[in-house]
Nucleic acid binder design. Structure first.
Lengths: 196, 196
DNA sequence: CACTACGTGGAATGTTCGTTCCAAAACTAC
DNA sequence: GTAGTTTTGGAACGAACATTCCACGTAGTG
C-alpha cells in the first residue's frame, strides 16, 4: 500500500483559498504557496496540478462553501425580507471585521481574470446565475407573502441586489466603512418595501 | 539645447492606461509596455520612473479624464434625475460596447492593489469620496427641484448609486449583458422616484 | 561645421518566476 | 524485518521578470 499523504487535502485547499483570495492570482507566487500551505513543492504539483489548476480548485472550493452557507440561510422559515436583510448585514459585518480586506474571492477573480481566462469566466458567470436564481426564489416567496412589493419582477430585483452586493464587496476592499455600507444597504432594501 | 523627446508624453500615458486597464498591474510586464507604448525601455524609465510609478500616473490620468467628463456632464441644466439616468446609460453602453471588457480602471485597481498598496488605496478612496460628493450635489439639486424624493438623504443616495454603479462595472468584466444591466439601473433609479 | 547634451536602441544585470527531477525518507503489506 | 510504493525535501531547470547601463545617434547652439 502507498504511503498516505501527510496533509489534509481540503484543509490545505482552504489555506490556498485564503492566500489567493488575499493577494490574487498573479501576486501569489508558488513559493508563497509552498510557504503558506506548509506542503512541499512536489506535493503541490502532484496533488493539485499546476498553479492555475490550484487557483481554480480554490475558487470552486470557496464557491461551494458560499453556496452551502447560502442554501442553509435560504431555507429558514422567516419572512423573505428579513432573510435578505440578514444576508446584507452578514456580508457587511464580514467585510468590516476582516483586517485583510479580502472582499469576495469571486468578485476578485472576476476583475483579475475573467476577461482573459474563459474557465474563470465560466465559473463566475455560472455562480452569478445560480446566486441570482436563488435570490429570485426568495424574493418571489416574499412577493407571495406580501413582505416584498411587486413593482419590479423578482428576477430584476435579484439582479439588482446581487449587483449592489457586489459593489459593497468592492468597497470593502478599499474603505470598509460600516455606516456607509449600512446606508447603501438601507437604500437598496427600500426597493423591496411593500408600500406599492 | 537638449534633443527633444520623440514621443508625446500624454499620448503614451493614455496607451499605458489602456494596457494596465485591460490586463491589470501584475499581468502587464515591462516588455508588454515597451511593445505597446512604442517607446524604448530607457525612455520609459527616464520619463515615468519605474513600472509602479507609471501605473500610478496612468491611474491618475484615467481618474482625471473621468473627473473632467463627469463635471461637464454635471453642469448641464437639465433635471437631475435625467442626468443620473444618462450617467448610468452611458456607463452601461460603454461596458457593453467594449470588446475587451475592461470595466472601470479604478474598480480594477481597487480590487487588485488597494488592500496592499497604500498609495493606490489613497487614490481610489479619494476618488470615491469626490465622486460621491459630486453625485450628492446633483441629487440635492434634484431634491430641491422635486425630481428626486427625500426619503433618503442625498449623501446616502449618492453612496448607494456609486456602489451600484461599481457593481455594474464588475459585471461588465464578466458578463456584459445589456438588458440585465438596464434592469439593475431601473431598480436603482426607482429609489429616486419622487412618489414619496 | 563642430560642440554639447540628451534621447535612443539593445545588450546585460541579477532576481524571481513556474515547473521538473531525483535521491532519501516513510509508511503499508507480507 | 523486508519489499515495494509514494511522499517528501531540496536542488536544478530555462524562461521571464524589472531594472540598469552604455555606446551610438540626433537635434539644437555658437
Amino acid at each position: 500500500m502507498p504511503r498516505p499523504k501527510a496533509f489534509d487535502e481540503e484543509a490545505v485547499l482552504q489555506k490556498a483559498v485564503n492566500l489567493f483570495w488575499c493577494r490574487g492570482y498573479e501576486a501569489t507566487s508558488v513559493q508563497d504557496l509552498v510557504d503558506g500551505l506548509g506542503i512541499n513543492r512536489a506535493s503541490l504539483y502532484d496533488t493539485y496540478g499546476d498553479k492555475r489548476e490550484l487557483y481554480i480548485k480554490a475558487l470552486e472550493h470557496y464557491r461551494d462553501a458560499e453556496h452551502n452557507g447560502f442554501c442553509q440561510w435560504m431555507d429558514q422559515s422567516r419572512p423573505a425580507i428579513d432573510l435578505l436583510r440578514d444576508l446584507f448585514t452578514g456580508g457587511i459585518r464580514q467585510s468590516v471585521d476582516d483586517p485583510q480586506q479580502k472582499g469576495c474571492f469571486l468578485v476578485n477573480a472576476t476583475i483579475e481574470l475573467a476577461p482573459h481566462d474563459p474557465a474563470i469566466a465560466r465559473i463566475v458567470a455560472a455562480n452569478q446565475r445560480t446566486f441570482e436564481e436563488r435570490l429570485r426564489q426568495v424574493i418571489e416567496r416574499g412577493q407571495r407573502e406580501g413582505s416584498i412589493n411587486r413593482a419590479h419582477s423578482a428576477a430584476d430585483l435579484a439582479r439588482f441586489l446581487f449587483t449592489t452586493f457586489t459593489g459593497l464587496k468592492v468597497m470593502s476592499r478599499a474603505r470598509p466603512d460600516l455606516s456607509a455600507m449600512q446606508a447603501v444597504m438601507d437604500v437598496a432594501m427600500s426597493t423591496l418595501q411593500p408600500i406599492d
